[in-house]
Design a protein around this nucleic acid. Structure first.
Length: 152
DNA sequence: GCCAACGTTGGC
DNA sequence: GCCAACGTTGGC
């Protein structure tokens, strides 16, 4: 089982939305590196839910990967913000995974706090200017994060 | 609102 | 294939 960190803006889709929905399709990823990370996800993997563009930004909850290798439907919908005219239904360019809400931590673990605790190698999200919305979390860092965050 | 850190696009 | 221009993400 691997660990990941996935960003979303709370105003657009925050942990509260996921809590209400139960599960969600993580669609709209239009960055090849992030897409490739999604492709390497396996059912049962865990993901830290990170609020980006928030005050403050940081980790707020936990998710579980429940379905992989799904085609992102938004790429074929001309009315969708993430419509990709270059994508072909026979060979879809973008895929996504389905995630299940596991819980919300008692307190947000801010990016500032993460930077105090982790190096860029230990937790790539702390790198300045990191725009990747999906990042791997090494096992050792995931265990330390879970200790810092406490129970769900 | 600004800026850093990219990725993408298009001219050549 | 290079690179300038442009767009986007996301922190501050």
């Amino acid at each position: 089982m691997a660990f990941w960190l996935m960003k979303s803006e709370p105003d657009v889709y925050g942990i509260q939305h996921l809590q209400q929905d139960g599960t969600t399709l993580w669609d709209g990823i239009r960055n090849y590196q992030a897409r490739n990370f999604m492709r390497s996800m396996a059912i049962g993997d865990r993901a830290f839910f990170y609020h980006s563009n928030a005050k403050p930004p940081g980790i707020v909850g936990m998710m579980e990967v429940v379905e992989t290798g799904l085609t992102d439907p938004s790429q074929f919908d001309p009315t969708n913000k993430y419509f990709d005219p270059k994508s072909n239904p026979e060979q879809p360019r973008w895929d996504c995974v389905r995630l299940r809400y596991m819980g919300t931590f008692n307190e947000l673990l801010s990016l500032d706090a993460l930077r105090e605790q982790f190096s860029v190698e230990e937790l790539p999200v702390v790198r300045q200017g990191n725009r990747l919305s999906i990042l791997p979390v090494p096992d050792a860092s995931a265990q330390r994060l879970l200790e810092l965050l406490g129970s769900l």
